[in-house]
């Protein structure tokens, strides 16, 4: 089981959305981390055969996925960032339709729909119309449709965007349950999503994979270290201007700062263990953030 991406490039007129990306993925959960506009969605759309690359190749088990055509899509499950649906279809109708276009026989489709609704916690709601579902429920239907054909490759583009913290935890657990014996590629700009479930992380910036590895490997290879310190309130601006600041917290005797620096910023600053969030800031700088957290 290997999905290989070699020198993959996608240009839209003068914009290069994906630039010479190469990576190999086998069974496991891969987190594709990057700020908005980093090229994650374009990369995923090419991996799903929705977009043809300008250059480079994508192969599954050594065979070009575009040449495989239907055979590749048969083993693919995809949950897009903007998950669209037919508003007046019931959940059951929607899943049965997707099952039919995924090539499942009606009997198998019915059985699989029942199993997946149970898995995503929507059993008993089959007749509910799609347009009446909450954001979290829609996402759960989204993952169910992606899983209908029991795919070997599951691609999830920002699956937790717009979900509340409870729904997000539930979703992460669900993905972990599904991870066995398949390749899951999860794109997000929310660090905590991948921190818990991804076995390998790909950091994407300006259309390129700028770093990859396990969380520990990436943290170990971080070019900067993490420091915490307490400073006077009027010094805060100086530190924010000169260092990548992970966190600012008001304290009784000043302001507590957590920042990144190759050198100890002040004699009394303490070195801290780095987290994935620190890593994210290290690579993506001011653009990084967990606005949805």
């Amino acid at each position: 089981m290997e999905l290989a991406v070699t020198k993959l490039t996608k240009r839209f007129q003068d914009i290069t959305a994906v630039d010479q990306v190469s990576c190999r993925m086998t069974a496991g959960v891969y987190g594709l981390l990057g700020v908005n506009g980093a090229g994650k969605t374009t990369l995923m759309r090419m991996l799903c055969t929705l977009l043809r690359p300008t250059g480079g190749t994508i192969t599954w088990e050594g065979e070009d996925i575009f040449a495989m055509d239907g055979r590749y899509r048969k083993i693919l499950g995809y949950l897009p960032q903007d998950f669209g649906y037919y508003p007046d279809f019931s959940i059951c109708d929607y899943l049965m339709y997707v099952a039919s276009i995924k090539g499942l026989r009606p009997v198998t489709a019915k059985k699989r729909t029942g199993q997946l609704l149970e898995l995503v916690g929507l059993s008993g709601m089959e007749k509910k119309k799609m347009k009446k579902l909450s954001g979290g429920m829609k996402r759960r239907v989204g993952i169910a449709q992606a899983m209908l054909n029991d795919p070997k490759i599951l691609i999830l583009d920002e699956p937790t965007a717009g979900l509340d913290p409870n729904e997000r935890i539930r979703f992460r657990n669900l993905i972990s349950e599904l991870a066995e014996e398949r390749l899951i590629l999860l794109s997000t700009h929310i660090v905590s999503d991948v921190a818990y479930i991804a076995s390998e992380i790909l950091l994407m910036r300006s259309g390129r994979i700028c770093a990859s590895g396990t969380t520990d490997e990436l943290i170990a290879a971080m070019p900067e270290r993490v420091w915490s310190m307490t400073v006077e309130k009027d010094q805060t601006e100086h530190f924010m201007k000169n260092y990548k600041t992970v966190n600012i917290k008001a304290a009784r005797d000043g302001v507590e700062l957590r920042l990144l620096s190759g050198q100890r910023p002040t004699p009394d600053s303490r070195e801290e263990a780095a987290t994935l969030e620190d890593l994210f800031l290290c690579y993506f700088g001011e653009k990084a953030g967990e606005e949805d957290a």
Binding site: C48, L50, G70, R73, G84, Y86, P87, G103
Partner: peptide, 14 residues
């Protein structure tokens, strides 16, 4: 409906 991505990534989509 923005259901194009799911449609075209399905086995029979194209």
């Amino acid at each position: 409906w923005k259901s194009d991505a799911v449609f075209f990534t399905s086995f029979h989509g194209r």
